[in-house]
Computed example of a mutant assay.
Amino acid sequence: MTVHPRLVRSVPFWLLIVGSVATIGGGVYVLVDKLTTMEAAILDGTATGVDVYVGQVWGVFGGILVGAGALGLALALAVAAVRAGLTRRDADSAHDEHGDSGAHTVSASAPATTAVPAHVPAGEAHDTPASPVTSDVPASPEPTVSSNPDASDASHR
């Protein structure tokens, strides 16, 4: 069983998405605001060197913010795609493991059988208490021998 959190509950993933959208929004605002101001000043004939040259730099900065936000959203999409692929691969491998393991192990809910050791006579076989199997153990072709050392000492006295 994997302990990876779901991607929709991942805080860094949502910070990436929200930050990318905020960066795109801020870039669009700077780009549109500065280019609109610069265009209006140029068309009115009142533009100064600061309006024209600094306005261009602000426009480039806004474009960079929009590009960085778009890159962040693409990265979030790539992370989601990789996570979906890993989840599917984990589920497939878990399905493969569980499909074959049922034939090779003894379940804890299966009734436990105990074999009587060969050195104990048939009349004393009822003195040995049976102990149930409490965990998954690999099945083997030989039966499991359960002996209680206290009971065998009492039978020899």
Rank of each mutant, 00 (worst) to 15 (best):
S146Q: 15
V21G: 01
L71V: 13
V60R: 03
V21L: 12
A125C: 09
V120N: 00
G19Y: 00
G59R: 00
H104T: 11
T144H: 09
G27C: 04
R157H: 15
A84M: 12
H104Q: 12
V66S: 09
T23M: 15
T114R: 13
A91M: 08
A110V: 02
G59Y: 07
G72P: 00
V137T: 11
S109H: 14
L16Q: 02
N148L: 02
A70H: 01
T37P: 08
T113S: 12
P129T: 02
E142R: 06
A22T: 05
V60Q: 02
L71P: 01
F61N: 07
D33K: 01
P129A: 01
Q56C: 00
T48H: 06
T87K: 08
A40M: 01
P138Y: 13
G63N: 04
P111Y: 07
P121V: 07
V30F: 06
T48M: 06
A78S: 11
G55K: 00
V32S: 10
A110K: 01
A80L: 02
L31S: 14
G19K: 06
A112M: 03
V8L: 12
D90Y: 04
S140W: 10
A41F: 02
A112T: 15
A68G: 02
R89V: 09
A84D: 08
G69I: 05
E142V: 10
A76T: 03
R157M: 15
H4Y: 12
